[in-house]
C-alpha cells in the first residue's frame, strides 16, 4: 500500500470540508473494497478521510412511505433489522447475501452505492426500488445516479448521507452468485408499487446496473413468472468474461427475474 495522510473527522461537515480541499483524497467508509484496492496498489489516494467516527450517518428509520437508511449502516445491520424485514424484506435478503459474514459486518450501504461496482448487489436494490440518494449537496433519484462502471453522479467532495427507499407493494431480489467471490454473476431486483407499475434492475450483466424495459413492460401488464418467460432477453451489450458468456448472462437474467417474481408473490 502506498503511504497517505489519514484524517478522522468527527462530523459530516468537517468530512465534507476536508474532501473539498484535498485534491486526491478519498472517503473511507467500511473499506471492504477500497482497502483491498489500495493493498494491490490499484488506488493511490493522497489522503484518506475515515468516516468511521461519524455516528450520525448510521441508522435505519421509517419516514412517511419510505425507509431511510444512513450511509454508514453496515450490511449486517440492514440484514438483521426488524424494520427492514417488515417493510422491505427483499432489501434485508439482499444485504444478507452480500459477500460473507465478516464483510457484511464492516461494509456499508453508502460505500457500496458510491463505489458502484458493476457486480455489486446494492445498486440493484437502489435502482430496482426507485430509491433516492441523499448527499451532502442534494437529492439524486436512482435513475440519475448510476453512470456506468464505478461511475456515479457524485461530484468530488460530495458524500452520500442516506438513501431513502420508497416502500413497494411487493419486491424480491434473486442472485446467481459467482461461486468464488459471491459477487453477482447476475442479480435481478424486481419491485411492484401500488399502482401496479414494475421496476426490474439487473446487476452483474454489463458495465453497471441497468433497468430492463422489456421485462418491466411485461410484468407491469401481468405480474407472473409466465410474463418473464414470454420475454427473450437479448445478449447484446452484456459482458463476456472468464466467468460467463454474454448469452449465458442473458439466460440468467430471465431465470433470476423469474425467481424474483416467484419470491415476490410468495
Amino acid at each position: 500500500m502506498y503511504a497517505f495522510q489519514y484524517h478522522r473527522p468527527g462530523s459530516l461537515k468537517e468530512a465534507a470540508a476536508l474532501l473539498g480541499k484535498l485534491g486526491d483524497g478519498k472517503a473511507l467508509a467500511g473499506g471492504q473494497t477500497l482497502i483491498a484496492t489500495m493493498k494491490l496498489r490499484l488506488a493511490q489516494p493522497s489522503d484518506l478521510v475515515d468516516l468511521g467516527a461519524i455516528t450520525e450517518l448510521r441508522g435505519i428509520k421509517v419516514e412517511g412511505d419510505a425507509l431511510m437508511i444512513g450511509a454508514l449502516t453496515r450490511h449486517a445491520e440492514v440484514a438483521a433489522s426488524a424494520e427492514v424485514k417488515k417493510r422491505i424484506p427483499a432489501l434485508a435478503v439482499l444485504a444478507g447475501g452480500i459477500g460473507d459474514r465478516q464483510v457484511r459486518a464492516v461494509g456499508t450501504l453508502g460505500g457500496s452505492v458510491a463505489n458502484n461496482d458493476p457486480a455489486a448487489d446494492y445498486p440493484a436494490g437502489v435502482l430496482g426500488l426507485g430509491a433516492t440518494v441523499i448527499t451532502t449537496q442534494r437529492k439524486i433519484v436512482a435513475d440519475d445516479f448510476f453512470d456506468g462502471m464505478y461511475e456515479t453522479a457524485l461530484k468530488p467532495g460530495e458524500l452520500i448521507t442516506a438513501i431513502s427507499f420508497p416502500l413497494p407493494k411487493r419486491a424480491a431480489y434473486a442472485k446467481f452468485p459467482n461461486p468464488a467471490s459471491r459477487f453477482a454473476m447476475i442479480g435481478v431486483f424486481v419491485s411492484q408499487v401500488a399502482n401496479g407499475s414494475v421496476r426490474v434492475a439487473v446487476t452483474g450483466a454489463g458495465g453497471g446496473v441497468f433497468r430492463d424495459a422489456a421485462l418491466e413492460k411485461a410484468l407491469t401488464a401481468n405480474f407472473t413468472p409466465e410474463a418473464v418467460t414470454s420475454v427473450k432477453v437479448s445478449a447484446s451489450g452484456l459482458s463476456s468474461d472468464m466467468h460467463a458468456s454474454a448469452e449465458y448472462r442473458a439466460h440468467l437474467i430471465g431465470v433470476m427475474a423469474k425467481r424474483a417474481v416467484v419470491a415476490a408473490l410468495g
Partner: peptide, 24 residues
C-alpha cells in the same frame, strides 16, 4: 479478504483483520 484466516472479533463481530486499517 477472501480466506478468513485473519478473522478476529471487533466489538464482538467477526471481521477480517487483513482488510481493515488498524486505525479503523
Amino acid at each position: 479478504g477472501q480466506c478468513g484466516a485473519c478473522t478476529i472479533h471487533l466489538n464482538g463481530q467477526a471481521v477480517k483483520s487483513c482488510n481493515i486499517l488498524a486505525l479503523q
